[in-house]
Write a protein that binds this DNA or RNA. Structure first.
Lengths: 198, 198
DNA sequence: GTCTATAAATGGATAGAC
DNA sequence: GTCTATCCATTTATAGAC
C-alpha cells in the first residue's frame, strides 16, 4: 500500500469516532454540534464529512459497532451446560463488558430515540438478539427446575436492567473492586430467579 | 377572586408544562425547541416566557416537582415494621408510581445531564433522599437477619435499577397486568436480598 | 395574555482554495 | 485531507403592538 505523505487520514477517522462517542455520552447527541466534535479532534467542521455522511450516520455507526461487538464477544464465551453457571457467566460478562465501555453503553441505551426509524429498527434488532441469549438461559434453567420463573421475558428484562444499572454508579478505584461488583451482582441475579415458587 | 375575561392564563401554564414533559420525554430536552412546545400548546413561542424564565428553568421545574411529589408520596405510605413487608411495599409503590408517570420518570433519569450544575445538585440531593429510604429498609432488614446483604448501598442501587427498568417495556393492556408486574418484581427484589450468605 | 417581528447566536452541511 | 468561507435554516430570547 502506498504511503500517504503529509496525511493523517488513517488516524483521523477513529479520532472523530472517539470524540463523538465521548461527547455524545457526556452531553447527548442533540446537544453536541459537529463543530464541537471537530474541535475535540483538532480539525475544522467541514473535514468531518470526509469520514461520515452526516451526524445521524455517525451516531448509527457508533451504536451498530457497539452492539455488533457486544454480540460477537458474548458468542465467543466458552459454553457450559449448567444453567446457574451460565447465568453467573452472563452476569459477569455483562458487567465487565459494560464497565469497560461506559460511553458506548450509555449511548446505546440513551440515544435510541435519536435514531432515524430505519436505524432504530436495526439497533433494536441487535438488542433483542442479546436479550434472547439471556432469556434462553433462564428458560432452559426453568425447564430443568433450577430456576423459578413466572415469566422468562420479564425476568430477562429485569435482570438486564439491574446489571446495566452498575454503570450508573461504579467508579474505578472506589470502595468495591470490579471483581467484587461482578460477584455481588451475579449473586443477586442468581437469587432473584431462585428459591421457592410464589 | 376576580374573573379574568378573555384570558386562559390559569390553564396555559399547566398546558405548557404538560407539553414540555411529553416532548422532552419523547425527543430529549436538547432536541425539543421552544417553538415545538408552543405549537403543541397552541400559542406562539414568545408567550412561553410569561410562564418560565427560560428553557432550563422549565426542565428544572418539571424534574423538581416530580422528585418532590415522589418523596412526599413515599413518606405518606403507611408504616410497617417487618422488613420483608417494607421491601414489598416499596417495590410495589415504586413500580406503580413510575408506571403512572412514565414521562416524568423518564426525564428524571435521562435529563440529569441537561441540568445546569446548580440545578443538577438540587435534583441529585432529592434523588439521594429517595435512595436512602430503600437503603434503610435493607440495612434494618439485614441487621434483623431477614436480608442477606454484602453491601446495602450497592443492593439499593441494584434494586432501584431493576424496578425502574419496568418502564422500558411495560405497556398498558399487554400480556401482564400492572398488578402482575408489581407482584413479580417485588418477589424478585425480595429474593435478590434473601437466601444463604455467599 | 398573546401576537408579530426581530435580534443575535448557533446549527448542519457544502464549495472551493490550497 | 484539511482549511476558510459561506449558505441557509433554526435556535433562544426579547421588544413592542394589540
Amino acid at each position: 500500500m502506498a504511503r500517504k505523505i503529509g496525511s493523517s487520514s488513517e488516524i483521523t477517522g477513529p479520532r472523530i469516532r472517539d470524540a463523538a462517542l465521548r461527547l455524545f455520552a457526556r452531553h447527548g447527541f442533540a446537544a453536541v454540534s459537529m463543530r464541537q466534535i471537530a474541535a475535540e479532534v483538532g480539525v475544522q467542521a467541514g473535514a468531518l464529512y470526509l469520514y461520515t455522511a452526516d451526524k445521524q450516520a455517525l451516531l448509527f455507526d457508533l451504536m451498530q459497532d457497539h452492539m455488533t461487538d457486544l454480540l460477537c464477544t458474548l458468542q465467543a464465551l466458552p459454553q457450559c451446560s449448567d444453567p446457574a453457571a451460565q447465568l453467573d457467566q452472563f452476569a459477569r460478562f455483562h458487567i465487565g463488558y459494560h464497565l469497560d465501555r461506559p460511553d458506548a453503553v450509555f449511548i446505546a441505551y440513551m440515544e435510541l430515540r435519536s435514531l432515524s426509524p430505519e436505524n432504530f429498527a436495526a439497533i433494536e434488532s441487535l438488542r433483542r438478539r442479546y436479550e434472547t441469549h439471556l432469556q434462553e438461559i433462564l428458560s432452559e434453567g426453568a425447564a430443568k427446575g433450577v430456576f423459578t420463573l413466572s415469566d422468562a421475558k420479564m425476568a430477562t428484562l429485569a435482570l438486564i436492567a439491574m446489571l446495566t444499572g452498575v454503570t450508573n454508579w461504579y467508579r474505578e478505584g472506589g470502595r468495591l473492586s470490579r471483581s467484587d461488583v461482578q460477584t455481588l451482582y451475579a449473586d443477586m441475579a442468581l437469587r432473584a430467579v431462585s428459591g421457592p415458587p410464589i
